[in-house]
Amino acid sequence: MRSIIGYLVCLVVALTIGYTFSPKVAPQAEVLATRPDRVQINGLLNLGARVVAVGERGSILLSDDQGVSWQAASVATQRNATLTAVLALDDKRLLAVGHDGWILRSLDAGSSWQEMRYDGDLGEPLLGIWTGGGDKVLAFGSFGKFYQSTDAGQSWAPQTLDIDSAHLNSMAGGSDGRRMLVGEQGLVLRTDDAGKHWHTLPAFYSGSLFGIVRLSADNWVTYGMRGHVFVSHDFGDSWTQINVGNQLPLYGHVVLPDHTGLVIVGAGSSVVRLDAQGELVGVGRLAGLGTLTSATMVGSRLLVGGERGVLQGSSGSAAALAATQATQ
């Protein structure tokens, strides 16, 4: 009898261990849709009538009521790989990029998505995507990965940059051909001919830069690790650091309506507000929201994404909140 009981105990333990370490099925999209606070969000996109959020485990969430409720989009080939950024070519055609070189495309404003590219063997993430208009798109990421599409994201060709395999994090530019691309170890690349020739700017900061913003042809802002924010008034020839009063890393931003400035968000629910010339307006925190990675404006409200999902920054204008709670 004791031996039988012993065998039964061993069987239960073995089954428990087997269940614990066996691969688990990712939460169903329907569950994530009803609980958008349980999935990390890395990118937000406001289409006007719809807001799109992308994040971990291949999550793509849609809101047609300005962020009040969310539904899951349909992904034809779900890889469960983290998505890092989302972009609109127009009000219907969208692109999203993520880990394992994953690129998705939607032709119906985000309701359904098809896979355009995936490289699970290499396993390196794409961290951003950018377009200057039309069907030409650029995607970039870890170890200098830089791809170009001339057919609205259907096919992609690698491009070469002389950057010694540095990670590329963010890109900005305008229709006049002026663009900048930033990455790790203070890397800043600049072009004035729509990307035909890229030049590395002299280093002015040794840490990673996570974002670059074009405010005008001459006024640019970049930000990143340890609360570092820099502004240039001469298209990157010189940079001045803005003291935001803390060392919390900054990860994402949104340009305010009518180009009246921008809001940058980051760790510790931090919010930094700059005006249209890149001058500091205010610094504040949206209490209890954790690390913020992305933001978009919905009317006068700031919608933020991060480790706790998609959240409304405040009951009123969070941009105004950052100004009224200004601290240097």
Score class of each variant (00 low, 15 high):
residue 1 M to I: 06
residue 1 M to P: 14
residue 14 A to M: 09
residue 15 L to D: 03
residue 17 I to V: 15
residue 17 I to D: 04
residue 22 S to T: 09
residue 24 K to G: 08
residue 35 R to C: 00
residue 42 N to M: 10
residue 46 N to G: 03
residue 47 L to P: 10
residue 52 V to Q: 07
residue 55 G to L: 02
residue 68 V to T: 14
residue 73 A to T: 08
residue 75 V to I: 15
residue 77 T to A: 13
residue 79 R to E: 06
residue 81 A to H: 07
residue 83 L to H: 07
residue 90 D to I: 13
residue 94 L to Q: 05
residue 96 A to R: 01
residue 97 V to A: 06
residue 98 G to T: 12
residue 99 H to T: 11
residue 99 H to R: 11
residue 100 D to M: 09
residue 101 G to N: 09
residue 104 L to C: 06
residue 106 S to M: 05
residue 108 D to H: 11
residue 111 S to Q: 14
residue 112 S to K: 05
residue 113 W to R: 07
residue 116 M to G: 07
residue 119 D to W: 08
residue 119 D to M: 09
residue 123 G to R: 05
residue 127 L to V: 06
residue 128 G to I: 14
residue 133 G to V: 05
residue 139 A to G: 04
residue 142 S to V: 05
residue 144 G to D: 05
residue 144 G to P: 01
residue 147 Y to N: 00
residue 149 S to M: 02
residue 155 S to P: 03
residue 159 Q to G: 02
residue 164 D to R: 08
residue 167 H to C: 00
residue 170 S to M: 12
residue 171 M to T: 13
residue 173 G to Y: 11
residue 179 R to K: 13
residue 180 M to F: 14
residue 184 E to W: 06
residue 186 G to C: 03
residue 188 V to C: 01
residue 188 V to M: 12
residue 191 T to E: 03
residue 193 D to M: 14
residue 198 W to G: 05
residue 203 A to C: 03
residue 203 A to W: 03
residue 204 F to Q: 03
residue 206 S to L: 00
residue 210 F to V: 00
residue 214 R to A: 02
residue 215 L to E: 09
residue 229 V to L: 02
residue 234 D to K: 11
residue 240 T to Y: 13
residue 243 N to P: 02
residue 248 L to T: 06
residue 251 Y to D: 04
residue 252 G to L: 02
residue 256 L to Q: 02
residue 262 L to T: 12
residue 267 A to T: 11
residue 274 L to N: 02
residue 277 Q to L: 05
residue 280 L to D: 13
residue 283 V to E: 10
residue 286 L to D: 08
residue 290 G to N: 09
residue 290 G to Y: 08
residue 291 T to P: 01
residue 294 S to N: 00
residue 294 S to M: 00
residue 298 V to I: 15
residue 300 S to F: 05
residue 305 G to F: 10
residue 305 G to H: 12
residue 306 G to E: 00
residue 306 G to Y: 09
residue 309 G to H: 01
residue 309 G to K: 01
residue 310 V to L: 06
residue 311 L to K: 10
residue 314 S to D: 15
residue 316 G to E: 06
residue 316 G to T: 14
residue 317 S to C: 04
residue 317 S to Q: 10
residue 320 A to Y: 08
residue 321 L to C: 05
residue 322 A to G: 15
